Amino acid sequence: MQNSKKSILCITHSKDTFPIEWVIKHLNSAGVKGVRLNSDQFPLHVQIGGSIKPSTFNSENALVQSDVGTVISTEDWLIDESNIGAVWHRKNVTSDLSSALEGDILGQATRESESIKCSLLHGLSDVFWLDHPNIQMASENKWLQLRLARKAGLDIPATLFTNIPSQVTEFYKQYKGDIVAKMHTPLTVSMGKPPAFVYTSKVTEEHLKDLASLRFSPMIFQQRIVKQTELRIAYVDGHCFPAQVNLNSEDDKELLDWRKAPPTISNWKHIDIPEELVRKIRVFMNSMNLKFGAIDIILDMEHKYQFLEVNPAGEWGMLEAELNLPISKYIAQTLIKYSN
C-alpha cells in the first residue's frame, strides 16, 4: 500500500458519529491526515472558495498554465485543493439557515449555498473519490441495479415498477397474491428503526381496490421471498463483509422488513457467504462503477441469495460495532491506496 503525504477529505455531517471517527483514526494511524468536513455547516461555519483564471498558451498553442483551485476552511483548519489526495463522500446534508434568515431569502440562500457547495466539492476531479456523488446518485436507480445484478448472475425477485393498476392486478394473480410493495426512494438514512420509514409491506385484496392512487405515485412490487434470513453486506473495493440479521423468534423471522423489529430483538450475527456470490457481487459493483456499497440480500428457503438492492452510501457502523468487522480499516486503506 502506497503512503500519501496529502490529506484525505471526509465529507459527512455534524451528527455523524463513530463510523467517520473510526476511518479518520485509521488514516491518522497510517500517517495520513483525515480532514472531517461537516457538509451541513456550510456556509455558516465552513468557508469554500474556488477560483479559476484564463489559461495561458505558448506560441505553439500548447497549454502553459491554467490556474484552478478550491480552498476549504473552518475555525480549526484550512485545506487547499492541491493538498487533497482523495475524498470519502459519506453523507451530504443541506445546512439549516433558519437561525440567520427567514422568508424568501431563506429559501434562496439555502438553494444557492447547496448549489455552490456541491459545484465546488464535486469539481475536485483530479482526486480519487469513494465514491463520487454523481456515481452515487446514478447508482440509486433500483431498476438499473436489478438489471445489472441479473446480468452479473445474481438471483433477483420477480419485480414490477409501475403506475398502471391493471399490471399490479395481473402481477398479484401471477404470484397467487404473494407480493410486496416498496418505495424507490428512502425516507431515512438510518439503520435503526425510523418513525417515518415506509416499510416493505404485503399487498392484500383490499389494496387492489385502491390502486387508483398509483397515478399520483408509482411503486415497486416484488414477489415475496420466503426467507431463511436477511443479509447486509458491506462492500469495499472488492472485499465483502457480510452480516446476518438475527431475529430470535419465528414470528420475527416472518417480518418483511427487519427494520420493523424492536432494537432489543434485531441484531447481527456473523455469516460466511460463498466465494461464487462474492465473485458475482464484484462483477455487479464494477458494472455500477461503485467501490463502496451496502448490499441487502435475502437467503431464501432454497438456499438462493436473492439480491434486493445496493445503497451506494449505506450504513455499516452497526456491523462493525457488533461484529468487529474491519470495514472502517478497509475504507481507510482504499482511500490511501488510490490517493494521489
Score class of each variant (00 low, 15 high):
2 Q>D: 12
14 S>M: 08
16 D>P: 07
19 P>F: 06
25 K>C: 05
26 H>W: 09
29 S>L: 08
30 A>K: 08
30 A>T: 01
35 V>W: 02
35 V>R: 00
36 R>T: 03
40 D>S: 07
44 L>T: 12
44 L>D: 12
49 G>E: 09
59 S>R: 13
59 S>D: 12
60 E>S: 14
63 L>K: 09
67 D>K: 13
69 G>C: 00
70 T>F: 06
70 T>P: 00
72 I>R: 04
72 I>E: 00
76 D>I: 05
76 D>G: 13
76 D>S: 14
81 E>L: 04
83 N>G: 02
84 I>N: 05
87 V>N: 00
90 R>F: 10
90 R>N: 07
91 K>M: 09
94 T>V: 13
95 S>D: 01
96 D>H: 11
99 S>L: 13
102 E>S: 15
104 D>F: 02
108 Q>C: 04
111 R>C: 06
112 E>I: 08
113 S>Y: 07
119 S>Y: 01
122 H>E: 07
134 N>R: 12
135 I>T: 15
137 M>N: 11
139 S>N: 01
141 N>A: 03
151 K>F: 10
152 A>V: 07
154 L>Y: 01
155 D>G: 00
162 T>R: 10
170 E>N: 13
170 E>L: 10
171 F>S: 04
175 Y>P: 04
179 I>N: 02
188 T>A: 11
188 T>V: 12
194 P>R: 02
196 A>P: 02
199 Y>R: 11
202 K>S: 14
202 K>R: 15
202 K>V: 07
203 V>E: 02
205 E>S: 13
206 E>R: 12
209 K>T: 10
210 D>L: 10
213 S>L: 11
216 F>N: 14
219 M>T: 03
221 F>T: 10
232 R>A: 02
234 A>N: 05
235 Y>F: 15
240 C>A: 14
240 C>D: 08
241 F>V: 05
243 A>P: 03
250 E>C: 06
250 E>N: 13
254 E>Q: 15
256 L>Y: 10
258 W>H: 02
262 P>T: 04
262 P>Q: 02
265 I>E: 10
270 H>D: 12
271 I>R: 07
271 I>H: 05
273 I>W: 05
274 P>V: 08
279 R>F: 03
280 K>M: 08
284 F>K: 04
286 N>C: 05
287 S>D: 15
295 I>M: 02
296 D>W: 04
299 L>W: 08
304 K>M: 04
306 Q>C: 15
311 N>D: 13
314 G>E: 05
319 L>F: 11
321 A>C: 06
321 A>M: 11
322 E>F: 06
327 I>P: 00
339 S>C: 11
